[in-house]
Structures are given as structure tokens and as C-alpha cells.
Design a protein around this nucleic acid. Structure first.
Length: 424
RNA sequence: GGAGAGAUGGCUGAGUGGCCGAAAGCGAUCGCCUGCUAAGCGAUUGUACGCCCGUAAAAGGUGUACCGCGGGUUCAAAUCCCGCUCUCUCCGCCA
């Protein structure tokens, strides 16, 4: 959520920024509502002040056993008027709130202008794409041949976009998760957390999934619970409605969680394999930081994600999302894309974003400056470190051998009972 | 699932209709005192939204709201009534 005061004073600037994101928003309604809100507020507060004063007088009169019936009657009217105005105010604020909640974040000045993922500039590239003496297979063929991925039975158990992992396939996914958690906690300074995998409406609103993106979520019938689409939701909401001490910042958390996504509107996209699932595993890094450090923290966060691929020996490139490709809540995002030979393409395996104070304002996460005692919003960041399913895809496709087996990257072998290879 | 108790400021905890944004204590900050530390003394100590004054930004003044959340009664609600949520205790069930 943007700061209403800032929005009020910079309507035109914000409108231009949104235009670059491909969003044409009519702010005239906002300005009208905002003026209306302040007018009503002033009127109702004046009446309240009067009521408070007169009520005090009534108390004194009664104590002296004097007659107060005339002013009591008058105050009755004032109270009715207050009730009326309160209702008007509530309606106005509701519409205003809905409007502001639907406005995306303002992108950082360094975000390139563009309309789609075609316009995302590459900022870094690492590693050698493996050379194959044979036609590299897509991971779904490798996995089915090795009997470690079972898409048919996954679909039988739940439906399309669910997969059953078996044997060393299941072990590999678990190894990837544990390896990443150990790396981020042991070497990158993150504290591990294990969260609820469902979250309530307030939490979903705090991080920006709601109210706008309800159709992307799985909702648990007859409850206020949603399955989390990413650990970003529970982890960022750890500090919702809190004022933190400055000295605890920055806070780094890393969490494993399954992620549940409805994938509405992606029919026909990535229908085969593990790339786009209703349920997938992910290790997520989340940071709470002071505003002045958040862009440095974004760089470090992105490098932490990239480090996983370096250790696994998988080629990747990192792109900056252009204005038109940027997510709703983000001010700046880097995507890390791993090389996937079976698809002859780089595919997103991590997305690292700085939300600045956008989520913090929605979720009311603040900190108190020691020097001035002032309360300010923190900046929040998060990034996948990495998506486990897609990491398994990258491993299978990059490390596949002519005989159909898959070499296990050395970094993972301690997590796989020392196994070096997946064979039939 | 059944029965009961509770939710007040950073914390402990008082407050059953007006004198309560809220006693007291603790903690914290600033100042005084002491050679240092401790003790002691004094002051300050929430958040949000408006308005005024003013500014580079602030400071300052003033009003309103907030005692788990939502609604109701009343001229007036932390206080009375209703609904909800959460916490705790006991019983049942259970990984």
C-alpha cells in the first residue's frame, strides 16, 4: 500500500509511474474521496468535541441536582448527527481503502521501462552450459524413465499439476531443501523458521496477495484460512502490527515451505513436468531492514540465491524485471534463471524483490529509531533460495547422462547418503 | 467436543457509567547528586488521523479516536448488554 499522504501530494507523478507499469489508473476518484474524507472528518470531530464538553457539563449539573433535560435533548440530536456522519465516513474510507489497496507499488528509479519479460535486461551470467553428445531430454522423461517422478499417479491422487516423487527422486528434493537451508543458515546469516502453511485473510492482505489476487489462492472451505502460495506470507507476517527495536534490524529469516497456487489463467502453460505445479516446495529468504539499507540488502539477497546454483554447478543468468513485468507489491525485482537444457531455455528459479515499505505499511511493521525515538516503517525483501522443484528440474536436465542416469552434484551427496548417481 | 476463567500502555497490575488516555510499580530516557559503580532525587515516557502555526525537514499548539475485535444501550462506556476471536485451567479425544 502506498502512503495516502504521499499519494495525495504526488498524484500526477504516481500516475506516470503506473503508466510505465502498464497500469492506467484514474486518480480523480481518489482525490475526490480524499477531500470528502477530510471534510467529513473535520465536521464529525467538531461535533464530538462539542459532545464531550457538554456531556461534562451535564455531569456537573446532575451532581448539583439541576435540570439538564434541555441540553440532553440537544445532545441527543448531536449524537444522531454524529452517527450519520460516521456512517458516511465509513463508506468513504471503505472505498478509499479499496482504491489504495489496488494500486501497485512504485518502481525504483533504477527499474528499466519495458512492457514484458522480453525487455528484462541481463545483469549477470554465470557458468558453462553443459555440452551433450546426445539430444538432452526434458526432466519429465528423465524422471519417468528413472521411476523417480510419477506424474500419472500424482494426477490420480490429486489432479493435474500434482506430482508423486519416488525413491531417490523424493530424496533429491529433500536433499535440495536441506542443502539450501544449511547454506543460508550456516554461511549467509539467516535464522531458520518453520511456519504454519495456512494463513488468514489479514496475513494474505499484509503481503499483498489479497484483496486483488484471490483467484490465485486456494481457500480452505468454511474457514478464514488460505493455503500459503509462498513462505513469504507467514514469514513477513511474523512482525505484523509490531514496532520493532532498531537494534534487532536487519532480521534475516529463511523458511522451507510447500507452496500452493491455483494457477488460474495459466491453462496450457508448462503443462508437462514439474515447472508449474499446484503444490511445490520452496526455500524462501525474507529480510526486515532499515530503509537506507534496503537496496544493498537486495543485492546481497540475490547473490545468496545465486550461490545455491554456483554450488550445484548450474549455469544461470540474472535479469532485472522491467516496469511492465514487475509484480504488484515490488519496487524492484531480480529474477535468477537457471539453464535448463531439456527445454533449451533459461527458466526462472528465484525471484528476489525489494518491497520497500509497501508491505510494511499494509501489515503495519514498524521500528523505532533509537536516536530520534521516531517510528518508521521497515523495508521488507524476499527471494526464493530457491524453488526446490525447479532446482530438481535443473539438476536432472543438466546432469543427465547418455545412459539415462543422472549424476548427483557433489554438494548434495552428503544429503543423499553419499550416492553419486541416480540410476534405474 | 464439554465445563469454567480471563484479555487494560514496553511489562506487572488497579480501575463497575461522567473527575480515566487511564492509578501504582517495574523498565527506559534525560537531568541532579556521588571520585567510579550501586543507591537516591527530579522530569519525561503510547499510536493513528485531522486542524493551526511554522519549517529544508522538524519542533510547537490544538482536536478526535484507540483499554482483544465488532455491534448495541446512554446526553456520556475501559466500565452495562449482545456476538466473535484469542489465551489459560479441568474433562474427553488424538499425532
Amino acid at each position: 500500500m502506498l502512503d495516502i499522504k504521499y499519494l495525495r501530494q504526488n498524484v500526477e507523478l504516481v500516475r506516470e509511474k503506473m503508466e510505465k507499469r502498464g497500469k492506467n489508473i484514474d486518480f480523480s476518484r481518489f482525490s475526490a474521496l480524499e477531500t470528502q474524507r477530510r471534510d467529513i472528518l473535520q465536521e464529525v470531530e467538531t461535533l464530538r468535541a462539542e459532545r464531550n464538553n457538554v456531556s461534562k457539563q451535564i455531569g456537573e449539573l446532575k451532581k448539583k441536582k439541576e435540570d439538564a433535560s434541555v441540553i440532553i435533548a440537544r445532545m441527543g440530536e448531536v449524537s444522531n448527527k454524529i452517527k450519520e456522519l460516521d456512517e458516511k465516513l465509513r463508506v468513504t474510507e471503505e472505498e478509499l481503502g479499496a482504491f489504495v489497496m489496488a494500486v501497485p507499488n512504485i518502481q525504483h528509479a533504477s527499474v528499466p521501462v519495458g512492457t514484458s519479460s522480453e525487455d528484462n535486461p541481463v545483469v549477470r551470467q554465470w557458468g558453462e552450459k553443459p555440452a551433450f553428445a546426445f539430444e538432452p531430454k526434458p526432466h519429465w522423461e528423465i524422471g519417468e524413465n528413472l521411476q523417480i517422478l510419477d506424474f500419472e499417479r500424482g494426477a490420480k491422487i490429486a489432479g493435474a499439476r500434482f506430482t508423486l516423487y519416488r525413491g531417490l527422486g523424493a530424496t533429491l528434493e529433500r536433499a535440495v531443501i536441506n542443502f539450501m537451508l544449511d547454506l543460508h543458515t550456516g554461511e549467509h546469516g539467516y535464522v531458520e523458521v518453520l511456519t504454519p502453511f495456512m494463513a488468514n485473510r489479514d496475513s494474505m492482505t499484509g503481503t499483498g496477495q489479497l484483496p486483488k489476487f484471490e483467484e490465485d489462492l486456494f481457500h480452505v472451505d468454511k474457514t478464514d484460512y488460505y493455503l500459503i502460495p509462498t513462505a513469504e506470507v507467514p514469514v513477513t507476517n511474523i512482525y505484523r502490527d509490531e514496532i520493532l527495536e532498531e537494534k534487532i534490524l536487519p532480521v534475516y529469516y529463511v523458511a522451507y515451505s510447500p507452496c500452493f497456487r491455483a494457477e488460474a489463467g495459466s491453462y496450457g502453460k508448462d503443462t508437462r513436468g514439474l515447472i508449474r505445479q499446484h503444490q511445490f516446495n520452496k526455500v524462501e529468504m525474507v529480510k526486515f531492514v532499515k530503509p537506507e539499507t534496503s537496496y544493498d540488502e537486495l543485492e546481497k539477497l540475490t547473490l545468496n540465491a545465486e550461490e545455491v546454483l554456483k554450488r550445484l554447478g548450474i549455469a544461470y543468468r540474472t535479469v532485472t524485471l522491467c516496469s511492465g513485468d514487475l509484480g504488484f507489491s515490488s519496487a524492484k525485482t531480480y529474477d535468477v534463471e537457471a539453464w535448463m537444457p531439456g527445454q533449451n531455455a533459461y527458466r526462472e528459479i528465484s525471484s528476489c524483490s525489494n518491497f520497500e515499505d509497501f508491505q510494511a505499511r499494509r501489515a503495519s511493521i514498524r521500528f523505532r529509531r533509537e536516536e530520534s525515538d521516531k517510528v518508521e516503517f521497515v523495508h521488507t525483501l524476499n527471494g526464493s533460495g530457491l524453488a526446490a522443484g525447479r532446482t530438481v528440474v535443473a539438476i536432472l536436465e543438466n546432469y543427465q547422462q547418455a545412459d539415462g542416469s543422472v549424476i548427483i552434484p557433489e554438494a548434495l551427496r552428503p544429503y543423499m547418503r553419499g550416492k553419486e548417481k541416480i540410476t534405474i
